[in-house]
Computed example of a mutant assay.
Amino acid sequence: MSRPLEHPLDNPARASLTGPHQDRFAERRGRVLRYPEDVSPFVAMPDAPGAADWADLAMLAGPGATVWLPATTVTAPDDWEVNWRLEGIQMVLADDTADADDAADDTVGPIPDSEAVRLGAADVPEMLALVERTQPGPIRPRTVELGTYLGIRRGGRLVAMAGERMRPPGWTEISLVCTDVAHRGQGLGAQLILAVAAGIRDRGDRPFLHAVADNAKAIRLYESLGFRLRRRTTFSMVRVPLERATAGEWENPGPERTSAQWSPRAARPDLSPSG
C-alpha cells in the first residue's frame, strides 16, 4: 500500500487527476490515472506502485505506448524501457505573507499584462506551430483545455506563450513557456509567467513550476520573479513492453503505439522555458 501524500505537490499529476482535473480529464484503471492522449502524455502512479499498478498502466496505455512520469521519484520495472530521465527541481512562487522572509527584495509579484491575449481552441494551430518551432515540450490538440493560456503576437503572429498544466488542489503549474527565436531577449517569457501567475492568484491558487536541475539561467530567472526551490524531482519517459511475461496479459499486442513524440532534447525546454 502506498503512503498517503504529504503534500499535493509531492505527486502533482496524481493530485491533479484526483482533484480539480478528475471529472473532466481522468482516465483510470485500478490506482493508475492518466490524461487523455490528446490532452497530455502524463500518467499518475501511486507513490509506491506495485506490480499490479504497472500492469494496470500497461493495460491503460497499451503495448508499446510511451508515457511520461512527471515530477516523481517512481522508477519503472526492469522490463520497461526508459527513453530518458531528467533530474529536475520544483519551485513555488513565494507567498506574500508566509514566505516574505525568504523572498529577495528585488522580486516582482504577479501582474496582469495588457499585451497578453487569451488563447483558445481557434488558436491551437498557431500554438502547435510555435511549439514545433521552439520545442518547449509536449503539447496536444486539447492541451489548451487544461487552463488559461496567454500569448503575445507580433505583426499578427503568435511569437510567445505560457499557460497552465497540472492543477493539484490549491496550486497551478505554469508551463509551456516559449518564445520564437527572433523575439527572445525582450522579456516576453517573464511577462507571460507573471501574467499567468496573476490569474492563478486571482482565483486563490498558488503558482508553481519545474526546471531542469542544471539549468542555472532558467532558475535565476524564476528566482528573480519570486519562485523558490521546494524540492528536487525527476521527469522520465518510459515505454510499455510490447509483450508481457504474464500469460494472457496481452490478448493481442497489436502495432506499436506512442503517446508522445519527444526526445530528451525536445523535452528538456519544457522544464526550462525560453523567452
Score class of each variant (00 low, 15 high):
Met1Trp: 00
Ser2Glu: 15
Glu6Asp: 01
Leu9His: 01
Asp10Tyr: 02
Arg14Met: 15
Ala26Cys: 07
Glu27Lys: 04
Glu27Ser: 09
Arg31Asn: 14
Glu37Ala: 15
Val39Leu: 04
Val39Met: 06
Phe42Thr: 01
Ala44Arg: 08
Met45Asn: 09
Gly50Ile: 13
Trp80Phe: 13
Asn83Phe: 00
Arg85Tyr: 02
Gly88Asp: 12
Asp96Gly: 14
Asp99Met: 07
Ala100Leu: 14
Asp102Cys: 04
Pro110Phe: 12
Val124Asp: 04
Glu126Asp: 15
Met127Glu: 13
Ala129Met: 07
Val131Tyr: 11
Thr134Gln: 09
Thr134Ala: 10
Gln135Glu: 08
Gly137Leu: 06
Pro138Lys: 04
Pro141Arg: 05
Val144Pro: 00
Gly147Glu: 12
Gly147Met: 05
Leu150Met: 12
Val159Cys: 06
Met161Arg: 04
Arg167Ile: 13
Leu176His: 04
Gly185Glu: 01
Leu188Tyr: 12
Gln191His: 15
Ile200Ser: 01
Arg203Ile: 01
Arg206Gln: 11
Pro207Ala: 04
Phe208Trp: 13
His210Glu: 00
Val212Leu: 12
Asp214Asn: 05
Lys217Arg: 14
Tyr222Leu: 07
Gly226Phe: 05
Phe227Gln: 00
Arg228Leu: 09
Ser236Tyr: 09
Pro241Ala: 11
Glu243Thr: 15
Arg244Gly: 07
Ala245Asp: 03
Ala247Cys: 04
Ala247Phe: 03
Gly248Met: 11
Gly254Tyr: 02
Pro255Asn: 14
Arg257Asn: 02
Ser259Trp: 14
Gln261Val: 11
Ala266His: 07
Gly275Glu: 14
